[in-house]
Simulated assay, not measured.
Amino acid sequence: MSTPVLTARAVTDLHDNLLANPGWPASVDLIPAEPLWHWIATNHRNNCLLWAEEDLARRTTVSDAEIAKNKRAIDGYNQARNDATERVDEILLIALGLVDPASASSDAPLSTAPATARLNSETAGSMVDRMSIMALKIDAMRKQTQRTDVDDAHRASSQIKLDRLLLQRVDLSTCLDGLLAECVAGRACFKVYRQFKMYNDARFNPALVAERLAARG
């Protein structure tokens, strides 16, 4: 059984290298063209943009309109992040032979996993998504250890947190590699799910439905 070349180390390297690029995340030219890595990088880009908006949304000296603008941007980036995660899962599951390719992008993908394979509650794509967030946390905490405008206690405390974050990423990486290896061996599987985020959909969000009905008179 063939599968795309995907290891946790390669994912970590991509995340870190993109964060180190001064043009990131503004430039989409840094996103690889190959489908799997395109969506992994797209997920990472939206997490980076989401992270920046979350910081801005905590401001206390700007207008409510500015914060509302941040909150709407957060919704958009969060939806795009989840969409990219699902694309990663679809590509991996097709390559692993664990989903019917014709249904993979539908709202109800058909699993073709062996009956004896254990079902992992977390998808490989969601683990890659978590690794993206871990890369952001590590990058931000490392910068705290390098600050010159704080005292030694702040830097020391930040170093302890950084060490813990690095360990967490190693553990998560081990889990991702282990899951994919088990999937290749037919001992495990996961399924692509849909987030069905109703608050972003005017057809389902009751507040938006009420607004539309009220506008009709």
Score class of each variant (00 low, 15 high):
72 R>T: 11
197 K>R: 13
123 T>A: 15
93 L>Q: 11
88 V>D: 04
22 P>A: 06
65 A>Y: 02
72 R>E: 15
171 D>P: 08
200 N>T: 14
90 E>V: 08
209 V>A: 10
115 A>K: 11
12 T>Y: 04
179 L>I: 05
68 A>N: 09
16 D>F: 04
69 K>Y: 08
129 D>G: 06
110 L>A: 13
17 N>I: 00
36 L>M: 05
53 E>C: 06
195 Q>S: 08
142 R>I: 00
81 R>Q: 09
137 K>H: 12
159 Q>M: 12
18 L>M: 03
209 V>E: 12
121 S>D: 15
207 A>K: 11
16 D>N: 07
155 R>T: 09
10 A>Y: 00
217 G>H: 08
207 A>H: 10
184 V>D: 07
80 A>W: 06
3 T>A: 08
40 I>R: 02
26 A>E: 14
91 I>V: 11
59 R>Y: 08
61 T>L: 13
151 D>T: 03
134 M>I: 00
72 R>M: 09
178 G>K: 07
42 T>E: 11
8 A>Y: 04
168 Q>V: 00
16 D>T: 09
137 K>E: 11
180 L>A: 02
96 L>N: 10
128 V>P: 08
182 E>I: 02
76 G>F: 02
141 M>Y: 07
53 E>T: 05
118 R>T: 09
163 D>V: 01
112 T>W: 06
198 M>N: 15
117 A>H: 01
101 P>I: 00
34 E>Y: 05
87 R>S: 05
71 K>G: 00
198 M>Y: 15
27 S>I: 00
168 Q>L: 11
188 A>F: 06
49 L>G: 12
136 L>R: 05
185 A>Q: 10
154 H>I: 13
173 S>M: 11
189 C>S: 14
31 I>Y: 02
207 A>Y: 09
5 V>A: 10
14 L>P: 04
183 C>R: 03
77 Y>L: 06
26 A>C: 03
122 E>T: 12
176 L>F: 01
140 A>W: 03
34 E>H: 12
73 A>Q: 15
209 V>P: 07
60 T>H: 12
81 R>C: 04
177 D>K: 04
79 Q>V: 09
67 I>M: 03
120 N>H: 15
15 H>N: 14
37 W>I: 04
208 L>V: 01
210 A>Y: 09
21 N>W: 00
188 A>S: 14
162 L>S: 04
4 P>G: 01
193 Y>L: 10
103 S>D: 07
3 T>Q: 07
10 A>C: 00
98 L>N: 02
108 A>S: 14
167 L>P: 05
17 N>C: 02
2 S>I: 00
192 V>Q: 11
86 E>K: 02
192 V>N: 11
70 N>L: 00
111 S>M: 08
168 Q>W: 07
194 R>P: 05
205 N>A: 11
202 A>N: 12
12 T>M: 12
107 D>L: 08
73 A>D: 15
131 M>I: 07
111 S>A: 13
190 F>K: 01
117 A>C: 03
46 N>I: 01
44 H>P: 09
